[in-house]
Simulated assay, not measured.
Amino acid sequence: MKRLFVLLFSFLTISAFAEAPVEGGKFNAGEMITHHIADDYNWHFADGATVYLPVILIDNGTVNTFSSHHFYDENHETVPYNGYVIEHGHIYRANAEGEPVADQSGLYDLSITKNVASMFISVLLLFGIFFTIAGRYKKNPGKAPSGIQSFFEPIIIFVRDDIAKANIGPKYERYMPFLLTVFFFIWFNNLLGLMPGGANLTGNIAVTLVLASLTLLITVFSGNKNYWKHIFATPGVPGWLAPIMIPVELIGILTKPFSLMVRLFANITAGHIIILSLFSLIFIFQSVAVGPLSVAFATFMNFLELFVALLQAYIFTLLSAMYFGGAVEEHHHEEEHAHGEAHH
């Protein structure tokens, strides 16, 4: 029932977004979809329900702060303010006519955008939940979990046993904080993005780039001598092939986190686009026959996205653990140990 309410509310929210273009002219599905999946300087939930976020600009050492409300008129069209203008989702210095000037050097945008605000909300949510769980473990050591603790404990054990232990081995404990953090961060933000008016945080390639870069850095700095030997002196490969194999192996180090970045970004963004496209059909055709079909397919996709939200968190965490496991694996030590036992 709760999920059906969320779906109904999602439909009403999207209808509110689409209402203005229909009244003012031809409905533009592409513009509506882009508006929903892109980052912005305000958080628009429905007509009359907009949160204007703080703008923070550092312009040649001078800090300028003001509400993003000044950038929008009564029709929610962007207008210049205080020598700045929003163009294509970014703030630029503007001339007297409100057009971006050529020289933008020394201008740094540290504004709290919709994605940043959503990330803060998810972080506070994660802190609240897991500090509560940790407190209950300290308060009731050895006792059966209850409440929220009983819900999350099997998931934490699953990440520990079936992802970390299975793919990293005996050294798994040092990677558990990162693996648990990235799993729940991605999962929570995927779910928050499906809520009415939710931000498309994990569908932002800058966010997935940071997550993938963290996996890359941990993998590289965890690499033991056998890991690097495999890169620069691949076993079983003739020496004359080294000039070819070394660049290939080095490129392989970068392509792994690149695939993590693109996979998460593409799957989450694609899900949002499909759902919004299905809803858009209602306003494009304006037909009683199309409306129920669009809602039915969009409802199915919304349920499917609940599974995808968990699946993408699992895949990102699993592949990260596999990369860590490959970096710390002791191939030669195991081979020598087995050879010694056979000799005795």
Rank of each mutant, 00 (worst) to 15 (best):
L214V: 15
L209V: 01
D162E: 06
V159Y: 03
N204M: 09
G197K: 02
F183K: 05
R136T: 04
Y172W: 15
I133V: 15
S213K: 05
I129K: 09
Y137G: 13
G106A: 07
G193K: 03
V207S: 14
Y227P: 00
A164H: 03
Y172R: 08
P145Y: 01
N140F: 09
P238K: 01
P177G: 05
L192I: 05
L241F: 05
I186G: 07
D109H: 05
M176H: 10
P154D: 10
E153W: 00
R136H: 07
G169I: 03
K114Y: 12
E173K: 14
R160E: 08
L125D: 01
G128N: 13
T113K: 11
S222F: 08
I156G: 00
A242V: 01
W240V: 13
Y137F: 15
Y137K: 15
T132K: 13
T132A: 11
A117L: 10
F151D: 02
T215E: 06
K138W: 15
K165E: 13
K171Q: 13
E153H: 06
F232T: 12
P141N: 10
G106S: 09
I231F: 02
N189C: 11
S122E: 00
L209T: 05
G128H: 14
F158D: 14
G236E: 02
F158Q: 05
L214M: 13
G135M: 08
L110N: 13
V237S: 07
G198L: 06
G169P: 07
G223T: 10
S105F: 05
L241C: 04
K225I: 06
F120M: 14
S118A: 15
F221D: 05
L241D: 03
S111R: 12
K143D: 12
M195S: 14
F152Y: 04
V116G: 02
N140K: 14
I168N: 01
M119S: 15
D161H: 06
G239P: 00
K138F: 15
L125W: 02
T219W: 00
V237R: 05
P145R: 07
F185T: 07
I218L: 11
V159K: 09
Y172A: 13
I121L: 04
A134T: 12
A199D: 10
G197F: 02
S118T: 08
N226W: 01
L209D: 03
F221A: 11
V210W: 05
K139G: 01
F184Y: 08
F185D: 01
I163H: 09
T234G: 00
V159W: 02
T202C: 10
D109F: 00
K143L: 04
G147Q: 13
M195Q: 08
I231P: 03
P235S: 06
I205F: 00
I157E: 03
V159M: 09
W187P: 01
N200K: 08
Q149S: 11
T208E: 02
L216Y: 12
A166M: 04
K229W: 02
P145G: 06
I163A: 00
G203D: 08
S150A: 15
S122P: 12
F185Y: 14
F127A: 02
T215P: 11
P141G: 01
I133R: 14
L110C: 13
G239F: 02
D162F: 12
I163T: 07
W228I: 09
S111Y: 15
